[in-house]
């Protein structure tokens, strides 16, 4: 598979990367791990004239704890997240999600930032960052800014990033006491992408009622989304099976549901409901365990 020819640029600094992107506009693309972009180029679906390789900006690969947050550099590979002891302790949803991405080879090269910026409608990370209410931080010649995950995903493979903006960091609030999170996914048998992927975060009050629920769903619509209807249905209610079932029923509400050879829109909507229920069940179980720990 041979892509169309392109020019390859290796900026030494973020500023340079951003400047190059501004210069090339729609003809330029940032390259991180390349595991979404390169296949599309090889299929000739995408043919950027300029590739701006960010992988030399090594400062952007890190995982660190800072106060109430965990900060993850955009160029951190899926594998580093999957195997991070810090994340396993502070934010286990991230390693749990990383484990479900592609295969070992993909996880060794692919990066969280590249994945989010590419924003494939069936990618795994969007679900997790939505449910964790993470902040996505980006740098451009105009300075640095943060975007809430719920505002980041705009449409099919379209994010809130300006074309000269570089996604630099994913800032994740640590889960509080009595909070549990889980990711439930059905893999597409060929691509490994999510036919449906649901990340759920549940915080329980001492009386067992749901204090806060955040649910991110990928693979179902043209973009990953927060299932606000599910969250609202749970808020303040006891986390009983009946309530979880009822809430999960809203999983695909108001969504233009995708259809492909493996799942019709009808079936995919059903999967969204089942996997939302499963993610909620697991998150509640963990929240209870966290409360008693």
């Amino acid at each position: 598979m041979i892509p169309q020819s392109f020019e390859y640029h290796v900026p030494r600094t973020l500023e340079e990367a951003s400047r190059l992107a501004a210069q090339f506009g729609a003809d330029g693309k940032f390259l991180a791990g390349g595991h979404s972009l390169i296949p599309m180029m090889k299929l000739r679906l995408a043919a950027p004239k300029h590739l701006i390789d960010l992988t030399c900006l090594r400062d952007l690969a890190y995982i660190r704890e800072e106060g109430e947050h965990v900060r993850i550099g955009a160029l951190t590979t899926h594998f580093r997240i999957e195997s991070s002891a810090l994340l396993k302790e502070k934010c286990p949803l991230l390693p749990e999600t990383a484990r479900e991405i592609g295969d070992v080879q993909v996880r060794n090269r692919g990066t969280i930032g590249g994945n989010l910026a590419h924003s494939d409608p069936a990618a795994d990370w969007p679900a997790a960052v939505l449910a964790l209410e993470a902040e996505l931080r980006a740098v451009s010649p105009r300075g640095e800014r943060g975007m809430a995950a719920k505002d980041f995903f705009v449409d099919l493979m379209t994010t809130a990033l300006a074309s000269d903006e570089v996604l630099v960091e994913i800032k994740v609030p640590q889960l509080g006491h009595g909070t549990g999170a889980a990711y439930a996914k059905l893999h597409h048998p060929a691509s490994g992408y999510a036919m449906v992927g649901v990340a759920a975060v549940i915080a329980l009050r001492d009386n067992g009622a749901v204090e806060r629920a955040a649910v991110g769903i990928t693979g179902v619509g043209p973009k990953a989304y927060r299932a606000f209807a599910v969250e609202t249905a749970l808020h303040g209610k006891p986390a009983t099976q009946a309530h979880l079932n009822a809430a999960a029923a809203h999983a695909a509400e108001g969504v233009d549901v995708n259809a492909d050879l493996y799942a019709s829109a009808e079936y995919r909507s059903h999967l969204a409901r089942v996997y939302t229920r499963r993610a909620l069940e697991a998150a509640v179980k963990r929240a209870r365990a966290a409360a008693t720990a």
């Binding site: 296949p39 597409h188 060929a190 691509s191 992408y193 492909d260 050879l261």
Partner: peptide
Amino acid sequence: LTGTLMDYA
């Protein structure tokens, strides 16, 4: 329709 290994399982 199954023209890639992302579609052909």
